[in-house]
């Protein structure tokens, strides 16, 4: 996969990527409906994707919660001279936008590159050909366990991430602006639709990221250069998918509201 140099080459490359992704998605759906359920493999992937991302997600989303509340607090004290409402201001935003989307970006970063690197290495060392020779189609043997694990783990990580952002925000509000933690934790401002919006987004990212990253891995060609190119492609394409899905779902929910 050489870097395209012309606009036509660029468009053709993106078109090929979309076609391949659709193909992997179609095959995965087929095997999701009918294929074998390799529970040990799914369990191993859930550990790799979920458990090993927890620390990373907590650190990033914790800082995010702190940042949002700093910004909100500075604005609130500047304009209305009172920072007691910053929890109420920031929490809906975290639950329906920043929590799921930044968790999604982090999963695209950590898990997307991991999946693409792993599958890409198997492609360039002919291990994927060996799988196809032995009744182990990549969509069933490699993609399905990752897809199932992500579908479960991305919403779980999102919940953990939102919780981390909530507590980090509470700490910032208390220490920087003297907001009472009890006032901060005003759960009435988060309506059911916010939670639904956040979880729908998380579920959508959980489906999109593993399929896009696996496709990038399966498209790897050549040696270590090919694997590097595949991981780059995975993180860019799956991060972009997160942003576009966020835009689409936010738009639908706004119209419903």
């Amino acid at each position: 996969m050489a870097e395209p140099t012309t606009l036509a080459g660029f468009v053709a490359e993106i078109r090929a990527q979309v076609v391949d992704t659709a193909d992997v998605a179609r095959q995965s759906a087929w095997y999701l409906a009918r294929g074998r359920w390799d529970w040990p493999a799914i369990w191993a992937q859930a550990h790799e994707i979920g458990v090993r991302s927890v620390f990373f997600v907590i650190v990033c989303l914790g800082f995010l919660g702190a940042i949002i509340n700093l910004q909100a607090g500075f604005q609130a004290t500047r304009i209305i001279g009172d920072a007691s409402l910053i929890g109420a201001q920031s929490m809906p935003l975290v639950v329906r936008l920043l929590g799921p989307t930044l968790t999604g970006m982090m999963v695209a970063t950590r898990v997307g590159t991991g999946i693409a690197a792993e599958i890409g290495s198997m492609v360039v060392t002919e291990q994927v050909d060996a799988l196809r020779m032995n009744r182990a189609p990549p969509a069933e043997y490699l993609v399905k366990p990752r897809l199932v694990a992500c579908m479960i783990m991305v919403p779980a990580l999102t919940t953990i991430g939102i919780t981390a952002a909530f507590f980090a925000g509470m700490a910032v509000a208390a220490f920087a602006f003297g907001t009472n933690p009890g006032t901060y934790a005003d759960f009435d401002v988060v309506v059911g639709l916010d939670l639904v919006e956040g979880m729908v987004k998380a579920a959508a990212y959980g489906v999109a990221i593993p399929i896009i990253a696996s496709t990038a891995g399966l498209r790897a060609r050549g040696g270590s250069e090919g694997v590097g190119e595949a991981t780059t492609q995975a993180v860019v394409a799956s991060s972009l998918a997160v942003i576009v899905l966020d835009f689409a779902i936010s738009g639908v929910v706004f119209v419903l509201r």
Binding site: T109, G114, E118, G120, V227
Partner: peptide, 19 residues
């Protein structure tokens, strides 16, 4: 460590950059 090493390094690099 070859092609798998490159994949792992990219993974580690983007994670640390994000933090």
């Amino acid at each position: 460590g070859g092609a798998p090493g490159v994949g792992r390094a990219v993974n580690g690099g983007v994670v640390v950059s994000a933090v």
